[in-house]
């Protein structure tokens, strides 16, 4: 699937994996939290090979947000957010306190939303709960698979802005998958461009816009008519 893929993500940075569908972005995320196992090669997490980690413990230390959200539909918002702390056997007081903090963090008033079911939330609210759930046990690493892809443009822009602020404040190591160049440029500390399992290159947002590789140009052109590119930053 992948050839000569060598990627590293630094603490506190947001690495965006950018590529078309089928380029292998999601597969990379699942290799990191071991939902998939590599047939060859190694993935180091905090310096230790992924295969050394107990997959369950590893996943509890990695927040995971996916496009379809995957909230547990039979549980309230509160219980969804509390899932990893409960799995980790936190005391009930601490769980409750943490749920309150997380809901504040993602801008969902506890009183209004705690007892709702996912079916009673809008797309944007569901995704906020998804982010709160991923952050609840304070994992050092966050994997996000097109989390804002299914939202309407206005809600998406709101969440992107809030998420960027959150990311710089929380100093998590984030791997963020998207096929949207604007999102990549807006959120990424660095952007890794993938094309059919091959890493085209890793760029800072500024370098991405100046890069001359045809694969990068193809994406940059999709930003709109040529002269607008620099303003897009």
């Amino acid at each position: 699937m992948f050839s000569g893929l060598n990627l590293s993500v630094a603490h506190g940075e947001t690495l965006v994996l950018l590529g078309r569908s089928g380029s292998g972005k999601t597969t990379i995320l699942k290799l990191i939290n071991r939902l998939l196992e590599p047939s060859q090669g190694t993935i180091l997490i905090a310096g230790r090979p992924g295969s050394d980690w107990d997959p369950i413990q590893l996943r509890r230390g990695i927040g995971y947000v996916i496009q379809d959200v995957g909230l547990f539909p039979h549980w309230t918002v509160e219980r969804n957010v509390a899932v990893v702390p409960r799995l980790e056997n936190w005391t009930e007081d601490r769980v409750q306190q943490r749920v309150g903090e997380m809901m504040d963090l993602v801008g969902l008033p506890h009183g209004e939303f705690a007892k709702r079911r996912p079916a009673e939330l809008s797309g944007g609210q569901k995704q906020r709960v998804g982010v709160a759930r991923a952050l609840a046990a304070d994992p050092p690493i966050l994997l996000m698979d097109e989390p804002f892809g299914a939202l309407d443009p206005v809600t998406r822009a709101d969440l992107q802005r809030e998420f960027r602020a959150l990311a710089s404040r929380l100093q998590k190591t984030i791997v963020f998958v998207t096929h949207d160049v604007r999102e990549a440029l807006f959120l990424g500390t660095r952007i890794a461009l993938l094309e059919q399992g091959r890493l085209v290159g890793i760029y800072t947002p500024a370098a991405f816009l100046k890069a001359s590789e045809p694969e990068v140009r193809a994406f940059a052109v999709s930003l709109g008519s040529g002269s607008g590119e620099d303003e897009a930053m």
Partner: peptide, 26 residues
């Protein structure tokens, strides 16, 4: 819904927890 099961696994539920807390109730 496979997305729900995948996120349950991704959250670090054991297969038994996925079964009892997510799959069977749903």
């Amino acid at each position: 819904n496979p997305a729900v099961v995948e996120s349950a696994r991704g959250m670090g539920m054991t297969p038994r927890q996925v079964l009892w807390q997510v799959q069977l109730p749903l």
